[in-house]
Design a protein around this nucleic acid. Structure first.
Lengths: 359, 359
DNA sequence: TGAGGCAATGCAATCGATTGCAGAAAATGC
DNA sequence: GCATTTTCTGCAATCGATTGCATTGCCTCA
């Protein structure tokens, strides 16, 4: 295949219009391939005479040469590729994160591999292995589930990694998350200021760092306000369906004659959709009959009915910071790990209203 | 890979640290590297004795060998990687497409590079070049803009490509799109059935295939119903802001005393958000005062106020079909190009109501 | 003028897997 | 029992770029 010419055939024509290699450029510029390599690589351009660099650059341009990331990567053991693992790209909190990360990485010359884990540990491991095969320079793990072996796998393949959105207990890995405690505090503070005294919490799935922190933040903020939690129920996942189930459980709580609470602090916007579903089913109106707060300010919750009061997290900043942390670790593996907490912000909309006067 | 462990199951032990190459496996199994290669590759396993294959497999397992996608790709000129270009991953119609494609591709052993073009031709070309450098086996182009050189670039690098969501005039490239004409027809038919006679169209940006098809579909359906279009305005892009501007233009139309239309067929859901904004600003209510239909049924338009009547497209099927078409072309470049139109479906919600009796 | 120093370039090995070809071994045919 | 296939395995080249080391040429300075 390399050269199937028969003896006597004319010499092969100039590099085919498809693909020029560094050797082709070398021939065209009248220098050795290694010189071409040095001339074309900004980092080593200094090792080459100005004139040669120019001649090589022109030859490369003329031949339409493009580097082969595979060949370079094979030699340097760097693919200039970063992997991003998300549980489910359709969950609207992830696209902004991925997008921000991808944009920053692209500007630094990195390509981005994206994959969905479906929260399935086996699938996650398979994907990490595959990314390792592709020799990704780093991995961004969004919402790694508890008990995941992702970190061990990254260590096994020596892939720098950064956690996004969720932390993992006891692992020395950089993470970019939200200050969940503070965020929930904002929600509770807002409700208290509106006069609510019986406040419930619809918590996230146990074992997930965001759920734990928000749960604890809830108790803490309530205590600070001198109140007792009216009710707490854990959702089984961050889904609309889980929100429905949990909300039903909350409403079916101890007091059957009247709701035991006037407001509910929900651990996440997606759960709120389920909460809205249940309220609608009961003929209740969020805001008017029961104040509801969410978390994330995911896209379009400003458009639902009623617009959701929620805690806005810095989606894009999360992706950016994580990408930066990762690049820092790639450039200098000895970089100390960082645990970045982004400060969230209270967004007041119509799903929270002043508590009715207690009669 | 058929490892579908349940959470809690004991995880298989991690292979020993370090990185084994095919040569290491060869040494361990007492055979030549080329034999290892053949034994490990399912396609060539048959060239090797059963016993040798087993011995090699065990050695590979024991050493924790993983293939190097870079090395293999360099040699075979196939990276087992597919690129997906979207204008903006944050636009909610894309995540379902990307996700479906990624899932199918992952099952076939492909990794997926995702990048955002921001509708910027220069950026798009840069990204395609970069993907070419990474030797992607194929490219999925979601919503390629008119006048893009993407197709030429793919041809230049001989990268099989498939268009998603939008077609491009005059290019012989497979495409998976929606039957936009039919979809708009459903919307018009629905409004006509509700008694509307003065129907306007808020069209998409000129030059974009979806906008053109929907525009034409609108005229066609109206003609079929024996009606004249009440008004038509083009939006400058598929964005909420463009929707606002276009809606204002529609309302400021010829008749200043009364709206010249009782219903508006909008080219896309995102534009509808702008339409809602304007209506709200005028104290008008979608549904009650003016019927509105969208297109795409993007996530969460069922939750906005009022829930949007729209045309549901098959997001996931679009990603899947496109991935399949692409894989077919990769496997057999002579595969005839296909132009797949997916049939959309009318989803009736509260933004459309029976026309008020004309007095 | 010749030794020493330095800068620019060439040489060749290397990264890890694949594959055409050739040789060895085993199976088959006559 | 020998020639001929058919299997199976090994050898070595190859993919395209990078890089440590060797070489060349030029400049400087004694």
């Amino acid at each position: 295949m390399p050269d199937s010419r028969l003896p006597g055939d004319p010499a092969p024509p100039l590099p085919p219009p498809g693909r020029a290699t560094i050797a082709d450029v070398a021939r065209a510029a009248g220098v050795h391939a290694s010189t071409v390599s040095r001339a074309l690589n900004p980092a080593t351009r200094g090792m080459v005479t100005e004139a040669v660099a120019l001649r090589v650059a022109q030859a490369a341009e003329r031949l339409g040469w493009r580097p082969s990331a595979l060949a370079a990567g094979l030699r340097t053991r760097k693919s200039r590729t970063i992997g991003i693992l998300v549980p489910d790209l359709v969950n609207p909190i992830f696209p902004p994160i991925v997008r921000a990360a991808e944009t920053l990485l692209a500007a630094q010359g990195y390509a981005t591999l994206v994959a969905n884990t479906d929260n399935d540990p086996a699938r996650e491991e398979m994907l990490i292995s595959r990314m390792a095969e592709h020799l990704v320079d780093g991995l961004m793990l969004a919402s790694a589930a508890e008990g995941t072996r992702a970190i061990e796998l990254c260590a096994r393949w020596s892939i720098p990694a950064v956690l996004i959105n969720r932390r993992l207990p006891g692992v020395a890995t950089s993470a970019v998350t939200n200050d969940d405690r503070h965020g929930i505090g904002l929600a509770v503070g807002h409700l208290v200021a509106l006069g609510h005294r019986r406040i419930a919490h619809l918590a996230g799935p146990p074992g997930v760092s965001t759920a734990i922190d928000r749960r604890e933040g809830f108790f803490e903020a309530l205590r600070a306000a001198g109140l007792e939690p009216a009710a707490v129920v854990d959702a089984s996942g961050y889904t609309r369906a889980a929100g429905q189930v949990a909300m039903q459980a909350l409403l079916a709580g101890p007091s059957l004659t009247m709701p035991a609470f006037t407001a509910v602090v929900v651990a996440n916007d997606m759960l709120c959709l389920g909460v809205y579903d249940v309220l609608q089913g009961c003929g209740l109106l969020a805001g008017a009959d029961l104040s509801v707060t969410g978390f994330n300010d995911m896209p379009f919750v400003d458009l639902i009915d009623p617009p959701l009061t929620t805690i806005r997290i810095q989606h894009a900043a999360m992706g950016r910071e994580a990408a930066e942390a990762l690049l820092a670790e790639i450039a200098e593996p000895a970089t100390p790990r960082r645990d970045t907490r982004l400060t969230p912000e209270l967004i007041i909309r119509a799903s929270t209203r002043a508590a009715k006067q207690e009669s």
